[in-house]
Simulated scan of single mutants.
Amino acid sequence: MCFDRSFPPTFVTEVARSLEAGGAQQLWVIEDCFFTTGPSLAAAALTVTEQLTVGVGILPAVARTAPVTAMEIATLCGLAPGRVLPGVGHGVQEWMAQMGVRPVSPLTALEEVMVAVTRLLAGEQVTSRGHYVNLDAVRLDQPPADPPPVLAGVFGPKSLALAGRVAGGVVLAEPASPSYVRWALEQAGRRPGDPDFHVAVFGVVCVKKDRAEAYRTMAPWLGRQLDQPRTTLTTLPFFDDLAARYADKGLDGLATMPAEWWTELAPVGTLDDAAAHLQGLEDAGVRSIGMYPIPDVEVARTQLADVVELARG
């Protein structure tokens, strides 16, 4: 399950305990400016659980210095060895500009940060003279004994190619379909199932007994995605037909589009439909799946049972 950025921090421990008690494997906490911080939420979730893995999606590369990012990750690993999956990405550039840290070259900045953080977590002493990362004999006092893969939270071709070179995997934002996963791995120069490249994806979950009700519920969400489509959608084999349907029929067209399109896009529909989507992701090489509930605490509480049921399946 994903912990929506709008949720109050106190809710994270309840979610973490419920997921672990139900047998789910992971919780992904979200860091977006200017909501709540990923490492703080992750620490809270890790300290109230014993088996749950907590992913952090994502830490903006330039919001912290590379050593501080490495320290955050190492501290989480010290709290819960083997149960941390950290993601680092460009961050939304408008937010970076608001904070006065927007890089001239986001690609260069991300590569320098990813390399430095990975080396520091490996226990190396790092000296670096880059455009954005300048370090003088920096070494972590308590690097993790078994460093986690540092995942790149990216979506464009150039960034995915960078991830394939320097990251331990990727975090692919919603809606991450099997089609998009295959395309992303191709851009990264990686093959599905590569043991050295961890693929994590996000999706939005909506499970109903009547799949038509689920489609009606999620049509406005999909419409917002289509208003400004990214590669997460444009790589779909049926994207042109989907866009034309939306332009012609609006939200009604999305609510009544073929069921197999919804199954490709997200864990939306019946429980069996959602399970089929997750199986498709796993077949495409995905190892971690985070599902966003409806961004309302009371609704999310009811959806915890759906996430647990899907995890058990």
Rank of each mutant, 00 (worst) to 15 (best):
V170M: 08
R119S: 01
E213F: 07
M96S: 11
A173R: 03
F11I: 01
R139A: 13
V199M: 04
V104W: 03
A21I: 02
M1V: 03
T231I: 10
K249H: 15
Q303I: 11
E174L: 08
T263F: 01
R301G: 06
D32V: 09
A21M: 04
L281C: 05
T108V: 15
E260M: 06
Q93A: 15
G91H: 03
P60A: 09
P237Y: 07
G193C: 12
Q228W: 09
R211M: 13
T65A: 04
R230H: 10
D227R: 15
E174Q: 12
S105N: 15
V115E: 09
T49W: 05
T231S: 10
L265S: 04
G164M: 06
Q93Y: 09
A214Y: 04
L85W: 04
T256E: 14
W262F: 08
A74Y: 12
V205G: 09
R230P: 06
H90Q: 12
G87E: 02
S177D: 14
F155E: 09
L76P: 00
V201F: 05
Q98G: 06
T302H: 08
D4G: 09
P175S: 02
L251T: 05
F197K: 02
Q303R: 08
L160H: 07
R230F: 13
Q93G: 11
V115P: 01
D227A: 14
C77P: 11
V268Q: 07
D240C: 01
D32T: 14
N134S: 12
